[in-house]
Amino acid sequence: MMNAPQAFAPVKRAIENGRIPGGVVGIVDAQGNRAVEVFGKAQTIPIERPMTRETWFDLASLTKVIFTTTRILEAAERGDIDLDAPLTTALPDFRQYTPDAWERKVTFRQCLGHLTPFPAVEPIYTYGRDPDLLRAFVLQREWRTGPAVYSDINFILLGLALERLNRVRRIRDLDPGKGFAWSAPTDESAATEDCTWRHEVLSGTVHDDNCHALEGSGHAGLFGTIDSILDFAHGLLTGTNASEHTIALIRTQLSDKRTHGWERPYIGWPGGDNAHPETIGHTGFTGTGLWIDFANGRAWSLLTNRIHPTRHSDSGIAQLRRAVGDIINAA
């Protein structure tokens, strides 16, 4: 398949150089042909386990595009929401004590495109351990504002909207779809961090602190294998797991760097500097990523456990992602 051996080489080197413990690379084309290669270890402490093709990964922010964006766009297509209406149409209690608050004017589309003034991240988990109280905190606090940036808060709010629309207490009560889950078996998962506040090496349990404290949210928490990721990508390439309307929106530019939920190519993009303009992609903090090139009918995913056993190391993940993307895009 298209430059597969060359695309696998940077991951092998990164492991040999001790930058990451392990990884899996997968490429699929519109005809369903796929190439997958597995490297290194799924866990190194306190035990060692090999990486396999069946290893489950904490997908982190890939949750935003694989699950939340898809569900929000489906809800819009059904007429359950209007993307240009404020979030208050699903979350009427959002900043309910300040009727003229700017937060009450934020729309679904603005959240999908990260076009809001919310901060990039907030340590919600430090405000308590009761998930219901933390949900109330998210909805009632006066959020500090700044320039529009990529923000977890946008998708935490979209996740809360999905809970209300689907009448579930937790987003994890929603079936995430074939090949994906909200947790995974410990001994079949790529380990993430030796968590300083949960006091254990995480494996099969969500790494994202806020998602863990909220007991499920729209910005993180999904688990999947390389083949589930490639199945999802192939479905978008062929239109078999999403409507034409949804696929058109995830390809529609909302800003220089973003579409509805996804990223589009720019200089320094994780998908490679030579990506075709009709490519979309997204990454996850744990070391995951997915890119879909509609023009050339192919997609690829790089899944690593780059934060095992700690996030505080130079894994070189940014350069690794671009190296893999550049090789695939050159095909």
Rank of each mutant, 00 (worst) to 15 (best):
Q6D: 14
V11P: 11
K12I: 06
G22N: 04
I27T: 07
V28G: 09
V36W: 06
E37N: 05
T44A: 09
R49M: 13
R49V: 01
P50L: 12
M51G: 03
R53K: 15
T55E: 11
F57C: 11
L59I: 01
L62K: 07
L62W: 12
L62P: 11
K64G: 02
I66F: 06
F67R: 11
T68P: 00
A75F: 00
A76Y: 00
D84K: 13
L91Q: 07
L91H: 06
Y97R: 15
D100Q: 14
H114I: 11
P117M: 10
V121F: 14
I124T: 04
T126C: 02
Y127W: 10
P131D: 06
V138P: 07
R141C: 10
T145S: 04
G146Y: 01
D152I: 00
N154G: 02
I156V: 04
G159C: 05
A161V: 09
L165N: 13
N166Y: 10
V168K: 14
R169P: 00
D175P: 04
D187H: 13
A191C: 04
C195T: 05
T196C: 10
T196S: 13
H199I: 09
L202Q: 13
G204T: 09
D209N: 14
S217T: 14
G218H: 12
H219E: 14
L222R: 09
I226K: 13
D227P: 02
H234L: 12
H234N: 07
G235T: 06
G235N: 00
L237C: 03
T240G: 12
T252D: 07
L254A: 02
R258I: 08
T259K: 05
H260Q: 05
H260W: 13
N274T: 15
F285M: 06
N296K: 13
G297V: 01
W300K: 10
T304Y: 05
T310K: 07
Q319L: 14
R322A: 03
A323V: 08
V324A: 07
